[in-house]
Simulated assay, not measured.
Amino acid sequence: MKKILFSAVTAIMLFSCQNDKTESSDPDLNVASRRGCASQEVLEGQLKANPALALKMNEIEAFTAKHSLDKFTGRLVNGKIEIPVVVNVLYRTTAQNISDAQIQSQIDVLNKDFNALNSDYNNVPALFSGVKANIGITFVLDQVIRKSTTKTSWGTNDAMKKTAQGGLAPTSPTTKLNLWSCVIGNDILGYAQFPGGPSSTDGVVIDYRYFGLSGAANAPFNLGRTGTHEVGHWMNLRHIWGDATCGSDLVADTPTHNEENYGVPAYPHYSTCAGNPVEMTMNYMDYTNDNAMYMFTNGQKTRISAIFTTGGARASFAQ
């Protein structure tokens, strides 16, 4: 188990992501072979634009450490936190204009994965069965907003979130989770803004090819787990390898990983970090294929819970 540390330097290292750069001139033909995101790039841009962000992130971490065991007393439905979701679809082609069914399939996946209702939840190895968690958060589709565009790709500078750049601004971002479906480019599957960033760009971006279960979704990322991974970031979860060799994800009950894992790793996969722990490659916050990730931990649950408590970074969702 890892020692939980955080600093301004750690803030700059969060969400380190890798991606393949091979890409067809027609984005509808591209299928990524490895999981990749652009969160570090986005984070570094935000830090340059607002150097105070690192201090704000430190304050969030201090609050999380102090209040992670507090009971949530806000907006509960059937005993669970319920989050309304707005999906913003930016499309150039018919394929990119994903269907309502594909959108709902992503909501359904989030509800299963965040409530331990996913069919592969029982695949968690016995070694980790004592820490596997039901996060207890539900998602309800609130609205779908569609906009035709001539852009072939949107990149990672949050252009899809800005009307002045042809995108769609987030709807009520302090009380609703906004998702964007679009062509990101450069084999980036998605990226998220973690707590602390500006509300004007808050939310999660998912390339339309990896959004939900149906339509344009492509294997090995066709089970909606890109959404689960990125929403995990939006809820203040770090990559399980801590974005550094033998780094810390600020969670006590996840093993220390050498680095990210890709594909479908054979179990057990041992780390060469201190103690040679078995890596939790099936955790949603690793980089494995959709069919190889299927669990959160109790430590991740308490970390998530803290941001929704009174005074937490996403306490406004209690309204």
Rank of each mutant, 00 (worst) to 15 (best):
P84R: 04
V85Q: 02
V87G: 11
V87Q: 06
R92L: 14
R92W: 00
T94P: 00
S99V: 10
D100G: 13
I103Q: 09
Q104D: 11
S105N: 09
V109A: 10
F114D: 03
N115I: 04
N115A: 10
N115C: 09
Y121S: 13
N122R: 04
S129L: 01
S129Y: 00
S129H: 02
V131D: 04
A133Q: 04
I135Y: 02
I137Q: 07
V140C: 01
L141C: 12
Q143E: 15
T150Q: 13
T150S: 15
K151E: 14
K151Q: 15
S153A: 14
W154Y: 08
G155L: 08
T156D: 06
D158L: 12
A159L: 07
M160C: 14
M160N: 13
M160H: 09
Q165S: 15
G166S: 09
G167S: 11
L168D: 04
T171W: 00
T171G: 00
T174C: 03
T175A: 11
T175Q: 14
L177F: 02
L177P: 11
L177W: 01
N178T: 07
L179V: 04
W180K: 08
S181T: 15
C182L: 14
I184M: 08
N186L: 11
D187R: 14
I188F: 01
L189S: 07
F194E: 10
F194V: 15
G197I: 08
P198R: 03
S199Y: 04
S200L: 04
T201R: 13
T201C: 00
D202L: 12
D207Y: 02
F211S: 13
G215V: 02
F221V: 11
